[in-house]
Design a protein around this nucleic acid. Structure first.
Lengths: 238, 238
DNA sequence: GAGTGGTCTAGACCACTTT
DNA sequence: AAGTGGTCTAGACCACTCC
C-alpha cells in the first residue's frame, strides 16, 4: 500500500469532529449530541468506535453522558467552575465560595511575556482585576489577562459574572477545560497592604495560571494573591 | 430472578483480582502480568473484558502496558516518584531534583489526629524528618508520619533512600498511587530559622499531605515546609 | 415501548517486540 | 514466526429515562 498511514485512528476522527462542532457552535453548551449509533453511522464507523471517542470526551469533561438520556456538551456553571478551578477549601475540606468585592476591566497593550504565552501573540489584551472576600474578610486578588481578539467587547460587559469561564463559554464559545497553576510563597507587600487593610508582612500564596481551551490554546494568564488564613489550596495527585 | 445483583461488573472482578495479587506479592514490582487472553480465560471472561480492566489499571498507574511486550506492574523509581509526587519546578518548568541533607527517624506514640486519619488507627508511628537542599541552598523540610504496623523495622533501615515511596513498594509491598496536598502560606519561624540559617520572617509554602496506597488506605501523613525562592509548586487541573 | 448509554462477547486485523 | 497489546467491527443483552 502507498500511504495507509493517513487514516490514523478512526476514533480520533470522531473525537476531532465533535470538538470542531462544539467550537463552531453547532453543538452549543448543554445541547444533546447524536447517539453512539447515529454519530458512528454519520462518520462511517461502528458504534463501538464512536463510543470510544465519546468516552474520551467525557474523561476530558468536554461532554457528560447519562445512561438512558444521552450525551450532552458540558455546561459551565458558577458551581462547576468554582469546584474545578478554584482550589481553596476550608479547614473541613469544604469548597470556599467567595464573594466578589471589587472589579476593574481595562484594555491595554500586551507585554512581551503575554505575547509569548497567550494564543495568537495578541498586541492588545483585557486586564481584569478582581478582589474577593470570604466570611466577611478579604481573601484574594486576581488579575486575569486575555487576548482582545478572542473576547471582543469584554470591557463593555462589566460588571462581569462571578466566574469568568462561564462567560467565556456562553458568550464566546470558548470552553476552558484545563489550567496550570504555579504556586509560590510571598508577602502581601506595601501596595496590597492598603487594599486588604493588613500588614505588608502578611504571608500570602502567589499563584500564576495558564488556562487552556478545547483547542489547547492558552486563552488566559492569571496572577492571584491568596490570603490563606483559614483556607488551603487543595491538590489531588493520581 | 432472585439476586442477580451480586455479579456486579465482570471487569471489576478482574481489576480487583489483579490488585489483590499485587498486594499479596504474587505480582511483584516490575513483573509481567498474564496476557489479556490468559487473564480473561483464567477468570472466565472474554479478552475484551480483561482488556477493560487492564486499561483502567494503566490509567491509575498501577500497571504499564507496552504494545508487543506485555503488561507490567509499575515499578516505583526515584525519578518517577519525584516526578509524580514532588511538585516543585524551577523557573523554566523543569523538575527540581533536591539532595537529602539531613534525616532523623524515630518511633513514638501517635496523636489523636494521626489515629483518626491514618489507616488502622495506629497507636505508634514512625516519624521521619528530612531536610533537602537544591543548588547548594536549603529547600525544604519534610516530616512524614507512618504507622509502625505497615512498615516494621523502618527505623533500622536508616539511612533511608531519597524517596520513601520506592522503599515502601519494594520492601513493604505498599504502593503509593495517590496523594492529596493542602497548601498554605506561612513564615519560616524561629525554630526553623536556625536550621535553614534564614530570617524567621521568610515566607514559606506549608504543605500537608495524605498519601493513599493501592487499597485506598491512608498510609502516610506529611508536613512540608518549602522555601520557594526560585522554585514553584506546579499544579495541573484537567 | 422506544431510545439511550453500559456491559460483554467473539472475532478480525494491525503494529510492535522478541526469538 | 509467535506473542503481545491496539484498533475496529457486529451483535447481544442490560439498566435507565421518558413517553
Amino acid at each position: 500500500m502507498t500511504e495507509k498511514r493517513e487514516a490514523q485512528k478512526l476514533y480520533r476522527k470522531v473525537f476531532d469532529t465533535v470538538i470542531e462542532r462544539i467550537v463552531s457552535g453547532e453543538y452549543g453548551p448543554g445541547s444533546m449530541l447524536p447517539s453512539e449509533f447515529d454519530l458512528g453511522g454519520e462518520l462511517g464507523v461502528s458504534q463501538g468506535t464512536a463510543r470510544k471517542a465519546l468516552m474520551e470526551l467525557e474523561r476530558k469533561k468536554v461532554i457528560e453522558r447519562r445512561q438512558g438520556k444521552g450525551s450532552f456538551v458540558t455546561q459551565r456553571t458558577p458551581e462547576s467552575s468554582l469546584f474545578h478551578f478554584f482550589r481553596l477549601r476550608d479547614s473541613e475540606g469544604q469548597q470556599v465560595v467567595p464573594e466578589l468585592s471589587g472589579e476593574t476591566v481595562r484594555r491595554r497593550k500586551s507585554n512581551a511575556n503575554e505575547r509569548r504565552q497567550l494564543f495568537g501573540s495578541p498586541a492588545h489584551v483585557f486586564e481584569i482585576e478582581r478582589t474577593r472576600t470570604w466570611r466577611g474578610k478579604p481573601l484574594c486578588q486576581e488579575v486575569s489577562v486575555v487576548p482582545t481578539e478572542l473576547f471582543p467587547g469584554l470591557a463593555d460587559r462589566a460588571p462581569l459574572p462571578n466566574t469568568l469561564y462561564v462567560l467565556f463559554q456562553q458568550a464566546y464559545a470558548c470552553a476552558v477545560i484545563a489550567a496550570e497553576d504555579d504556586l509560590q510563597a510571598g508577602l502581601l507587600g506595601e501596595k496590597l497592604s492598603g487594599v486588604f487593610d493588613l500588614p505588608p508582612e502578611t504571608p500570602v500564596l502567589v499563584g500564576t495560571r495558564r488556562s487552556y481551551d478545547l483547542l489547547e490554546r492558552v486563552v488566559e494568564l492569571r496572577h492571584s494573591i491568596y490570603l490563606t488564613g483559614d483556607a488551603r489550596y487543595a491538590v489531588r495527585m493520581d
